[in-house]
Write a protein that binds this DNA or RNA. Structure first.
Length: 484
RNA sequence: CGGGGCGUAGCUCAGCUUGGUAGAGCGCUGCGUUCGGGACGCAGAGGUCACAGGUUCAAAUCCUGCCGCCCCGACCA
């Protein structure tokens, strides 16, 4: 069969051919990011920033609703502060960037560029906290951090990246645990209900735990290539940082005690998950709640006929009046180019408005979540009803996209039946491989050597079982997968 | 950081083996015809061939170094 003269999609390779190549092409062609002239760093372009802002809004609103306040701590951390928590230092030292000079003068003490802020926040909390009446402290900051990474990819791992880091201090361990669980649940909710990315929540194994934490919990999403992506973490820090930075308070019983701290973060890596999970051969697909633009109106204008453009402007005003994030594309391009362009950017609904539509008093709505020609992908709506119909349609698209992604996760989560199958599935990169696990670091290390996969996260075991990786008694259930 | 690959126009790439004044398609600009799925015609713009040395009468091409990107691995809360 002859190839069509015009391929369905120019610009990017098919998603199924090479996910990595597709991913990078989409990030650049949809104008989310550009490579910067600094190794391992990206420029977040306006459309990418708008997407980030949607995530920020969803999280920030929930942080505030649970009693947190935003603040800002310094970018630069004196070396002596960093050195105080031993495990933490060892965990981060390979990734820390240092400032050694101020102007031409060599500094007497190096300054670390924050890879995370526990150690600059610790001394401040020590300063602010005197009594149990000062607790809890519930602070979040929206900042950039720098980690010197060997290998970088847009959003997934870059030298400098944007995130939020919450840092709280509590009077008791149970209270700190409660906070950690609460924030993990917010991450789960934002990932699933806003970004439409289904995730597994659970605790990290000891080898995957945050340096300096007593417990680390994560949300883990599954990418189309069968690799998992850690998309948010919540750490119980016990009294480790309190001891290192001398954060003490007078308790009700007048004893002097160390506080219990937590930290939790979600970065723009979440956007990487969204891109990979939802995108298709035509480019991005934005879940409506994350979409910077919910709908775009494309006027189909015949030469010398300006009735269409006027009708389109009226429609735009109507939709904006309904609080929808809409745009009218008046660029001097042919409609087909505009269709392809907005599909690449993943706008959930395209409104086509031409002379035929106007004559019939309607507009044509096209859903980005449906494949071309798929039933229900295109609907005709009376002009007066577009706003209300669109609101309902956006809900439907959101639900449909989450259902599609959930179906993928479900069908790629496999409970291995025996040890041979377990190793086989991991080598095949078949997805989240679910087994009863012994919880031993040596066992996890062995699996990693054999398959390059590790535990993603753990959850309680129901009943007695044997570890399917090594045959020792199991203590938990674990998802294993290769990770990004 | 180890192994491999690649750097030529905004993008995808040819040219390099065998040294001799820089190419194509797409995109971009202007004008016109078009406009319900990536139009067409005419006219144009655009490149220190990643960078630095070396060999040579002459280097995109050969040699050395270096930087960057991609893939695999290590590393990576």
């Amino acid at each position: 069969m002859a190839q069509p003269k015009t391929p369905l999609v120019k610009e990017i390779p098919p998603k199924g051919a090479d996910l990595s190549e597709w991913y990078q092409a989409v990030c650049y062609k949809a104008e989310l990011v550009s490579l910067a002239p600094v190794r391992g760093c990206v420029v977040l372009r306006p459309y990418g920033f708008a997407l980030w802002e949607r995530l920020v809004a969803a999280l920030d609103e929930r942080f505030k609703a649970t009693g947190h306040e935003n603040a800002y701590f310094p970018l630069l951390i004196p070396e002596h502060l960093l050195l105080k928590e031993q495990e933490h230092v060892e965990g981060f030292s390979p990734e820390v960037a240092w400032v050694t000079h101020g102007g031409n003068e060599r500094l007497s003490e190096r300054l670390a560029i924050r890879p995370t802020s526990e150690v600059i926040i610790g001394p401040m909390y020590a300063d602010w906290i005197r009594s149990y009446r000062d607790l809890p402290i519930l602070i979040n900051q929206w900042v950039n951090v720098v980690r010197w990474e060997k290998r970088t990819r847009p959003f997934l791992r870059t030298t400098e990246f944007l995130w939020q880091e919450g840092h709280t201090a509590h009077a008791s361990e149970p209270e700190a645990r409660e906070e950690v669980v609460r924030m993990l649940d917010i991450y789960r909710e934002v990932a699933q209900d806003i970004a439409a990315v289904p995730v597994y929540t659970g605790e990290k194994s000891s080898s995957e735990r945050f340096a300096g934490a007593t417990h680390t919990f994560s949300i883990e999403a599954l990418m189309p290539d069968g690799r998992a992506l850690q998309s948010g973490t919540s750490h119980e820090l016990g009294q480790n940082f309190a001891r290192a930075y001398d954060i003490k308070f007078a308790a009700e019983d007048q004893s002097l005690q160390y506080v219990w701290t937590t930290s939790w973060g979600m970065s723009w890596r979440m956007l990487g998950a969204l891109i990979m999970v939802h995108g298709d051969d035509r480019g991005l697909r934005m879940p409506p709640k994350m979409a910077p633009i919910e709908a775009v109106v494309v006027p189909i204008v015949k030469a010398g006929d300006d009735r269409v453009i006027h009708a389109a402007r009226d429609l735009l005003a109507q939709l904006k009046g309904s609080g929808l994030r809409v745009r009218l594309d008046e660029r001097d391009l042919r409609p087909g180019n505009k269709f392809a362009d907005w599909e690449m950017r993943g706008v959930p609904i395209r409104v086509e408005l031409g002379a035929n539509d106007i004559a019939a008093g309607v507009a044509t709505l096209v859903r980005r979540d449906k494949a071309k020609g798929e039933a229900g992908g295109k609907v005709t709506v009376a002009l007066a009803d577009v706003a209300s119909r669109m609101t309902a349609l956006l809900e439907e698209i959101q639900t449909n996209m989450f259902a599609q992604a959930s179906e993928f996760l479900r069908t790629h989560t496999i409970a291995a039946g025996d040890t041979a199958e377990f190793f086989h599935l991991l080598r095949e990169r078949a997805g989240m491989i679910d087994i009863p696990w012994c919880g031993r670091a040596q066992c996890e290390a062995f699996v990693k050597v054999e398959t390059s996969a590790t535990t993603r996260n753990l959850r309680p075991l129901d009943g007695a079982a044997t570890c399917l990786a090594c045959g020792e008694p199991a203590t938990v259930r674990a998802y294993f997968a290769q990770s990004y």
